[in-house]
Design a protein around this nucleic acid. Structure first.
Lengths: 198, 198
DNA sequence: TAGAAGATTCATAGTGTCCTGAACGTTCTA
DNA sequence: TAGAACGTTCAGGACACTATGAATCTTCTA
């Protein structure tokens, strides 16, 4: 075997190792994020993303060391997320899949939407609580009225953050200029702002 | 019983219902977020947050309908997050707890830090993959060199987003002005940017 | 110093998610 | 039309997370 041929084989091996690295990383990150895509889902996407040619379920399962049924389920999820599309390959009865190249757009938007959903939930809760306490205050005796006041004050305090965060997302998605200062002020302590100045 | 007294009792009942509402919402939101604080943890914090006086483990467990051991474990977690502090109450041997009023600052920062951690992981993976493929390209034969090129192109593509997101967070925490446009461009489709203009 | 009061730890059980191989249904082809 | 080639579904098992009551540990006090 010539030295050149040895080099070529070494090169191929290294490429596959690099892909493995990428797949592994993708699995880790997907698994960590808000329960949208699980580890194997992320790995499948990563594999297809680095693959020029579409792959079959068997290809994917074999490459990732994962059962075909698992691949089947996860790839359907990826399809629903529009992260992957079925591709027809001439002369084969198998289904082949290729990665959509718009990865971040879709996933990240869904990720942000999920956070937004939590913010909306929080604000709804805040509003409802405020309304109910305000109503109760009217009927309440002196003692309870004081308690109601305190609760309202606390609820308003917590509202500060959620409204700021919500406004940030709204503006961001609406394409408006966003005011980060509002959020920064609510999140950071003044100390932190000073000490991180460079 | 006078009408006034009835009103007062009604008022007190409504206030407690409002607090329940708030607790319920807090549990839901906590449970949904990145596995930092679980449902009961969120509920405990919510309860203490609306309570003027500090509460004991027994108080909390009874109010939330949850075992004392559960409260014990969760409150320790809240203490570690600096969301709650132990308070000494004259004349009692029990531990009492009160909510820190700095809620959003700490939790939200940890939340963002967790996202940042994922971004860092992703970027590390991207860098490593890039390095390895680049190295492999040298030794590779013509065929593999093409594959290496393709992989590099793909990795760079995905890097676009992660670098933009990472820069956003860095600038945000450093107190620098942030450029949201970069992120917007990577996440949004041009269509979306147009159609959401108001 | 016994035991009461309080907090924590532990073994156990419930729950949800994920993965697998086997069973199944469908479509093609010899 | 039998059977091969596929993809999907399903029952069961592994695992992580959470909640519970009992057991344990610690501190106070009668």
């Amino acid at each position: 075997m010539t030295q050149q041929k040895k080099d070529r084989e070494e090169g191929e091996k290294m490429i596959e190792e690099a892909v493995d690295l990428f797949i592994q990383g993708a699995g880790k990150v997907s698994g960590a994020l808000l329960g949208m895509i699980n580890k194997v889902g992320g790995q499948i996407y990563a594999l297809l993303f680095l693959e020029d040619e579409p792959l079959s379920l068997d290809d994917i399962g074999e490459r990732l060391g994962v059962s075909k049924s698992n691949v089947s389920i996860n790839i359907r999820m990826l399809e629903e997320y529009n992260l992957v599309r079925k591709v027809w390959v001439k002369g084969s009865r198998k289904d082949f899949y290729a990665a959509e190249r718009t990865y971040p757009k879709k996933v990240i938007r869904d990720f942000l939407d999920k956070i937004r959903g939590s913010l909306t939930d929080a604000i709804t809760t805040i509003e409802r609580t405020r309304a109910k306490v305000t109503e109760a205050k009217v009927a309440a005796g002196k003692q309870d009225r004081k308690r109601a006041e305190f609760i309202l004050q606390q609820v308003n305090l917590i509202g500060l953050f959620y409204y700021a965060a919500n406004k940030f997302f709204d503006d961001f998605f609406a394409g408006k200029p966003v005011n980060v200062e509002l959020l920064r002020q609510v999140i950071m302590n003044p100390d932190d702002l000073n000490q991180t100045r460079d």
